[in-house]
Write a protein that binds this DNA or RNA. Structure first.
Length: 539
DNA sequence: GTACTGGGCCAC
DNA sequence: AAACGTGGCCCAGTAC
């Protein structure tokens, strides 16, 4: 399903006549215009650096990794290492950044399943061999330009993930505590419930005829509710919402506040915030589609309730930007559906759909688009699909095709060539349809993740070029990422320039992926003192 | 005690 | 009104 890539970089020619090498045959391990330095060994102990330059490799023993990287990065090499998450944190702690890298683990995962690859890289322990195999896989693939861009963007993402953690999102423990205290009551000393939760617990039990209930236990709740004559099958929110009973309101309130306390309460604050910074762990490539996952800190689920505790330093601001309706715009661009691209010409994609008469109002347009990308067949969303398919046949047939491929056991690929996993097809029709919904969504979600990686990388590069001071304390820098949203912490006087950089990088990302396509990727930007103010000012 | 699953709910 | 994608985290409950 991947065709021409107008925006991809030029095809990388294989150099059959590459020179002999000093230490190892590195034919295949070259890219245009960059020296590569392969680091092997243990970043905390003995390190060997192998310089790969125009087919020649020379190895040297590195005594002081930090000094070595600081010095060599001035020549703008591409650092090749087993994984950025292993090598970068100690360097960043020592105040050393690198411009670019090749992350063998992340690239290896992409190349292992990409349908563009014709020669699968063999597994090697030695990073020089591993790198050579991966370069060959890229250069001999059906579309080297796309895999070149994807693997570079993925690796840039790995650098950014480490830098986000090292820099941290500015966080006011005082403001966080104020929010918690306002909603829950003062922090309890022992393990008992905070005052507000204890009161809600009592209200729930009173409303359930004085039953003893553990409100954290669905089983306990279900039993008590049925004993009180409430006809429910489960205690899920959507089922409770339709029921008129005095126990429901305090229970909903209890759940919301209880989750706030357990997921992002005082314990979270103690664990994840230090020195005025929230430092979560991001996992680039952690999701099959290529989205980032997180492990510890819950960065990708930071609830709205506490975002106001992300407060810029005195004299600094947060530039908060999100890509407006990213996924539908991605679908429009990758399908080349001129009508859908035209619908997105303005700032509000869904309003464009309404103008085309493809949906009655904005809410319907949104439900219909999400349904098309998620595979809704019934309900309100399903009913709106025919009109959408009539107005935008190319876009809709792209996702339908992806769904059919999945149902029939064929892999699908994102725009840049990340492919869905193989799956045994000894499945029931229901399982086949479920896999079809996955592959349907995979192509759009995965390509949106690729756009976001290019956007992130562009922002980082442009910031580094525009603000050469000491990172992070003296210059604007990325501090947060959330799928289609970024936050830059910046001295107030640079906020406007940063906003321009963020917009320029969004344009760059669109061109990198889709070349001359007229598809646009507008970003909404807010410059704020605290993260909580961003949604309000953007909406 | 640890490992795992499902319910519930947060984010996109 | 509810079935439609990707995750993480906490809790309760169960198996070992």
């Amino acid at each position: 399903m991947v065709g021409e890539c107008p925006g991809g970089r030029g095809r990388i020619s294989r150099d059959a006549g590459a020179s002999d090498t000093l230490a190892v045959d590195v034919r295949g391990a070259r890219e245009d215009g960059a020296v590569q330095i392969v680091l092997s060994g243990d970043p905390a102990a003995g390190v060997t650096a192998t310089r790969v330059d125009d087919g020649l490799a020379s190895a040297e023993r590195v005594e002081d990794l930090v000094e070595f990287v600081r010095r060599e990065d001035l020549a703008r090499p591409r650092w090749v290492w087993s994984s950025a998450s292993e090598w970068l944190p100690p360097l960043l702690r020592a105040g050393v950044r690198v411009e670019r890298c090749h992350d063998l683990a992340l690239v290896g995962a992409i190349l292992a399943s990409s349908q563009l690859v014709t020669t699968r890289p063999r597994a090697f322990e030695d990073p020089v061999e591993r790198y050579r195999e991966q370069r060959i896989a890229i250069e001999t693939s059906r579309d080297p330009g796309r895999l070149e861009l994807l693997t570079a963007a993925e690796s840039a993402g790995a650098i950014i993930a480490a830098e986000l953690r090292a820099a941290g999102l500015p966080w006011s423990a005082t403001e966080h505590d104020r929010i918690l205290t306002e909603l829950l009551g003062p922090r309890p000393v022992g393990r008992e419930r905070p005052a507000v939760l204890a009161a809600l617990h009592e209200q729930i039990e009173a409303a359930l005829d004085g039953a003893i209930v553990n409100p954290d236990s669905p089983q306990s709740l279900l039993a008590a509710m049925r004993a009180a004559g409430i006809p429910v099958r489960s205690t899920q929110r959507w089922e409770l919402r339709g029921i008129d009973h005095p126990a429901i309101a305090p229970l909903s309130e209890y759940r919301s506040l209880s989750r706030l306390m357990t997921a992002n309460g005082w314990a979270w604050l103690d664990t994840w915030v230090s020195d005025g910074r929230f430092r979560p762990e991001y996992v680039p490539g952690g999701v099959v589609t290529g989205r980032w996952a997180s492990s510890g800190g819950g960065a990708l689920q930071l609830p709205m309730q506490i975002r106001a505790a992300a407060v810029a330093d005195p004299g600094w601001r947060l530039v908060v930007a999100d890509a407006a309706q990213l996924e539908p715009r991605i679908l429009a661009a990758m399908s080349g559906d001129a009508a859908m691209i035209e619908a997105g010409a303005g700032a509000d994609f869904y309003a464009g759909l309404v103008e085309h008469g493809a949906a009655a109002d904005r809410a319907q347009a949104k439900v219909a688009m999400l349904g098309a990308m998620y595979g809704a067949t019934t309900g309100a969303s399903g009913k709106l699909m025919p009109a959408l398919a009539r107005a935008y046949p190319r876009a809709i047939s792209l996702v339908e095709r992806a769904a059919r491929d999945g149902e029939q056991g064929r892999p699908v690929s994102t725009w840049l060539g990340r492919s869905s996993p193989e799956r045994a097809t000894d499945w029931t029709p229901t399982q086949a349809r479920a896999w079809g919904r996955f592959t349907r969504n995979f192509v759009v979600q995965g390509t949106a993740a690729e756009w976001a990686l290019c956007w992130l990388g562009g922002i980082r590069g442009r910031l580094a070029a525009a603000f050469p001071g000491s990172w992070p304390e003296a210059v604007p820098h990325l501090v947060f990422f959330l799928h289609d949203e970024i936050v830059v912490h910046t001295p107030q006087e640079h906020a406007e320039e940063v906003a321009g950089i963020v917009e320029d990088a969004a344009r760059d990302a669109g061109r990198l992926l889709f070349g001359a396509s007229p598809a646009t990727f507008p970003v909404s930007i807010a410059t704020v003192r605290d993260y909580g103010a961003a949604k309000a000012s953007v909406a």
